[in-house]
């Protein structure tokens, strides 16, 4: 397939089209992933999450600038929500990524959640794999940013940065939100605003109280719009990754993430065969009639449907 070769060569045009194929669940997209899977796994995946308006896109833009200045090939996948009412989406992350966009050598893709609720889209990891195979060395994954339920990113990324700002709420907010549990690093953005010291103190208290007793979480102060604290944030990410690789925790996390992803893909494929396969609607109708005629139980019929679909 010519598209696969073009992706391997790093063509932005080809990557753009390839991501659409996996995003739309097209058979060509799955073929592409089959063909490229042996080239996936060398890039570093950095997740960014945090409440809306905290500065995630701006921080990614600045981090990308730091990395590309020393020759890294950077990509960004930024996820925004799909409206459950219209099915449409307004994807606005490019607005804050003017440096990356202007550089021309950073690949940036906006993605709509299309009904997923964990902060990422179903095809986000597929897109990241394609970017990985294309030779990108650093891939940022920016979540929707609704907070509190964005656990998906901790499985898709090697390192997760949680961005907060002094406006994000007090220490109790920090303790109750599920957000901090996914953090490998916390950055307090807009640190020039009042309350940053207080938030940092609250966070340290929260961590001391055993929210996350397993290890030390670095807390940094940043002002992403001015680039302040961003080189330090990049260095902290790299130190984290270095330590994790040395201890084996890096590989362990990738394995756990892959287990999770395989479960999801398997469920998706089974569901597709079950309800979308040839003759599926007729089989379900027939099964329902059997139950109503008292020939079989609902559970017995459901099992039979699964056996039929997997055959």
């Amino acid at each position: 397939m010519a598209l696969a070769d073009e992706v391997l060569r790093g063509s932005f045009h080809a990557i753009g089209k390839a991501i659409s194929l996996v995003e739309n669940g097209a058979p060509e997209g799955r073929d592409l992933l089959e063909r490229l899977h042996a080239r996936v796994g060398d890039s570093l995946r950095i997740g960014l999450t945090g409440p809306p308006g905290v500065g995630k896109s701006t921080a990614v833009d600045e981090m990308a600038a730091v990395l590309r200045a020393r020759g890294e090939k950077v990509a960004v996948v930024a996820v925004d929500p799909t409206s459950p009412f219209s099915g449409g989406a307004l994807l606005g992350d490019r607005i804050r990524m003017s440096k990356a966009a202007g550089a021309g050598d950073v690949f940036m893709r906006s993605m709509a959640t299309r009904g997923e609720s964990g902060g990422l889209a179903r095809a986000t990891q597929d897109a990241v794999d394609l970017l990985d195979a294309s030779g990108r060395t650093f891939i940022f994954i920016e979540t929707v940013g609704v907070g509190q339920s964005e656990i998906e990113v901790s499985r898709a990324a090697d390192c997760v940065i949680v961005l907060l700002s002094p406006e994000s709420g007090d220490g109790v907010q920090a303790m109750k939100s599920g957000l901090l549990e996914v953090a490998d690093i916390v950055a307090i953005n807009k640190a020039d605003r009042g309350g940053a010291d207080r938030l940092e103190h609250d966070l340290r208290t929260a961590f001391e109280l055993g929210l996350r007793p397993r290890r030390e979480i670095p807390i940094l102060a940043t002002q992403a719009n001015a680039g302040i604290g961003i080189p330090e944030l990049v260095a902290t990410v790299e130190a984290f990754v270095f330590a994790r690789k040395a201890s084996g925790a890096f590989q362990e996390r990738r394995r756990l993430g892959m287990e999770d992803r395989l479960r999801k893909i398997a469920e998706f494929l089974v569901q597709k065969d079950l309800w979308g396969g040839e003759g599926a609607p007729e089989r379900v109708k027939e099964a329902a009639e059997r139950v109503l005629r008292r020939e079989n139980s609902p559970y017995g019929c459901a099992r039979a449907l699964i056996r039929e679909a997997l055959r």
């Binding site: 932005f12 409206s83 490019r94 893709r109």
Partner: peptide
């Protein structure tokens, strides 16, 4: 309006050069 009609709209904001817009179209397919 396009969002409400079910489109995925990539809004790039103000002061874009033609080059930026074309690059966005390419990467966003």
């Amino acid at each position: 309006a396009l969002r409400d009609a079910g489109f995925e709209v990539i809004y790039t904001g103000l002061h874009q050069t033609c080059d930026l817009i074309a690059n966005a179209a390419l990467q966003e397919d």
